[in-house]
């Protein structure tokens, strides 16, 4: 064959050679990029991060008495009336499952969304029947991550009365603590003002119980 059509043969050999070179280029550059972007780059970042920001690079862990009790960035579930409650969490099989983040993904007209919101309103109202204020929206809706560590200052303010009563504390004391734990907008311009629920509850446990339950006259 090769002798019969030397021109065609030459052409084939040439393109084949070119193709072979290209395949080699493709695989070699992919391997080099894997070494560079897949190993060198993340290792360099890890090295610098662990040296300069060791706590943040390892999950901003909060410890109490030497024991890790959570992360400053990952929310926890609170249901006791004596604690501030966070956002609803749609993680499975239980709320605030740090190993499996998830939103509810319920559409605005989905009856399931209404059920979830109504159940939460019921729980909030039952725990604090005297509070007639409108419930702030972030207290009855699920966060995007299911691990939101924050609530709005409005949602915290709504709960002050209940928490104070359950703990036998003065409302002004609790309110002052909320104000202390409230973070404003970043540099006053970015994001929204928030309260970290876990940090607030830990601070709450540190408060001395100054007052017993109010006696109803």
């Amino acid at each position: 064959m090769a002798n019969l059509c030397p021109l065609a043969y030459k052409f084939l050999v040439a393109t084949e050679k070119k193709m072979f070179t290209m395949i080699r280029n493709a695989f070699m550059s992919l391997i080099l990029f894997t070494i560079l972007a897949g190993f060198v780059y993340p290792l360099v970042v890890t090295g610098i991060a662990q040296a300069i920001f060791p706590s943040r690079a390892n999950g901003s862990i909060i410890t109490r008495g030497g024991k890790p009790v959570g992360s400053a960035l990952i929310g926890q579930q609170f249901e006791d009336p004596g604690y501030f409650w966070g956002r609803l969490s749609a993680t499975t099989p239980y709320p605030y499952n740090g190993g499996s983040s998830s939103g509810s993904n319920l559409g605005p007209n989905n009856p399931e969304l209404m059920k979830a919101v109504q159940a939460r309103i019921h729980a909030v109202r039952t725990a604090d029947p005297d509070n007639k204020a409108k419930i702030p929206v972030d207290l009855v809706t699920a966060s995007g991550s299911g691990l939101d560590p924050h609530i709005s200052p409005a949602a915290a303010e709504y709960q002050v009365q209940r928490v104070a009563k359950a703990r036998g504390l003065d409302e002004t004391t609790v309110r002052a603590l909320v104000a202390k734990e409230t973070q404003g907008r970043w540099l006053g311009i970015l994001g929204e003002p928030v309260v970290n629920v876990l940090k607030l509850n830990i601070a709450l446990e540190g408060l001395p119980k100054t007052k017993t339950m109010r006696v109803v006259p």
Binding site: R87, L106, D148, P153, A155, E192, P193
Partner: peptide, 16 residues
Amino acid sequence: ALQPGGNMEGKEARFG
């Protein structure tokens, strides 16, 4: 001043 309000389902408090 105390909350972003609006449709907060699926949104994070810090972003509003």
